[in-house]
Amino acid sequence: EGEAHRVLFGFVPETKEELQVMPGNIVFVLKKGNDNWATVMFNGQKGLVPCNYLEPVELR
């Protein structure tokens, strides 16, 4: 579910809505907001990550 994206930079959450991710993680974007935040799914957890920390990736 969602579009696959690769994480470019590590992100440490500052609020409980945000999700910690590391460079190279593959996350699935469920929704992109107008505020430059994306709702993503990673390892069964859902949370917010900055859009500019993500790049689309083709999964084969």
Rank of each mutant, 00 (worst) to 15 (best):
F11A: 07
E3H: 09
E58Q: 13
V29W: 01
Q45E: 15
V49C: 04
G24Y: 00
W37E: 05
E55I: 05
E58A: 14
G2V: 04
V40W: 03
Y53F: 12
H5W: 02
L8R: 12
G44I: 00
N34Y: 07
E17Q: 11
W37L: 12
F11I: 04
R6E: 05
M41H: 11
K31E: 14
L30R: 06
L8S: 07
Y53S: 06
Q20Y: 09
T15E: 06
G44Y: 01
N43H: 08
Q20D: 07
K16E: 13
E3P: 08
P56F: 00
G44Q: 08
T39N: 08
L8D: 00
V40H: 01
F9A: 15
P23F: 03
H5P: 00
G24C: 01
C51F: 11
L8T: 10
E3F: 09
V49S: 02
N25S: 11
E3Q: 15
V29H: 05
N52W: 05
C51E: 05
K31G: 11
E14V: 11
G47F: 05
V7I: 07
Q20A: 14
M22A: 15
A38V: 03
M41C: 12
V27T: 00
G33A: 13
K16D: 13
I26N: 02
F28V: 09
Q20C: 10
M41N: 11
V49E: 00
W37F: 09
V49Y: 04
L30Y: 03
N25Y: 06
N25C: 09
E3A: 10
M41R: 12
V27F: 02
V27N: 00
F11E: 02
V27L: 04
G44F: 00
V21K: 00
E17D: 13
H5D: 00
G24R: 02
G24A: 02
V29L: 11
P13S: 07
R60C: 14
E58G: 14
Y53N: 08
T39R: 09
P23C: 04
G10Q: 14
M41Y: 08
H5T: 03
A38H: 01
K31S: 14
K16N: 13
T39K: 08
P56L: 03
V12M: 12
V29Y: 01
E55C: 05
T39W: 09
H5I: 01
N36H: 09
P56Q: 08
F9R: 14
F42N: 03
Q45L: 06
G2L: 05
L30C: 06
G44T: 05
E1I: 12
V21P: 02
L19R: 02
F28S: 14
F28R: 15
K16R: 11
E14H: 12
P50K: 08
T15K: 12
Q45P: 00
N25G: 02
E14L: 10
G44L: 01
G33W: 11
G47L: 07
M22V: 13
G10K: 15
G47V: 07
K46D: 03
N43V: 01
I26G: 04
R60H: 15
G10E: 14
Y53C: 12
N34R: 14
E1A: 09
M41W: 12
T39D: 08
V29M: 09
R6W: 00
V49N: 06
V27K: 00
N43M: 07
W37Y: 10
F28C: 07
K31W: 05
E58C: 12
L54F: 01
K32E: 03
C51P: 05
V57W: 04
K31V: 08
N43L: 03
A4Y: 12
G47E: 02
L54R: 03
P13A: 09
L19E: 03
G47I: 10
E3D: 11
Q45D: 15
I26V: 11
V27R: 03
L54C: 00
V27D: 03
F11M: 00
N36R: 10
R60P: 15
P56M: 04
G2R: 05
N52C: 12
E14K: 15
L19G: 03
Q45M: 12
E58F: 10
R60W: 12
W37S: 09
P50T: 02
E1T: 09
G33L: 13
L30H: 08
V12C: 12
G10L: 08
Q20I: 04
L8H: 01
L59H: 11
D35G: 10
K46C: 13
E14S: 15
N43R: 12
A4D: 03
F28I: 09
E18R: 13
Y53M: 08
F11S: 08
D35W: 01
W37Q: 13
M41K: 12
F28G: 09
Q45T: 08
M41G: 05
V7K: 02
G44V: 04
N25K: 05
W37V: 10
P50S: 01
E55L: 06
N36K: 12
V29A: 02
P23W: 02
Q20P: 09
A38Q: 01
R60N: 08
M22L: 12
K32I: 02
L19M: 11
L30V: 10
P13I: 06
E18A: 06
K32V: 09
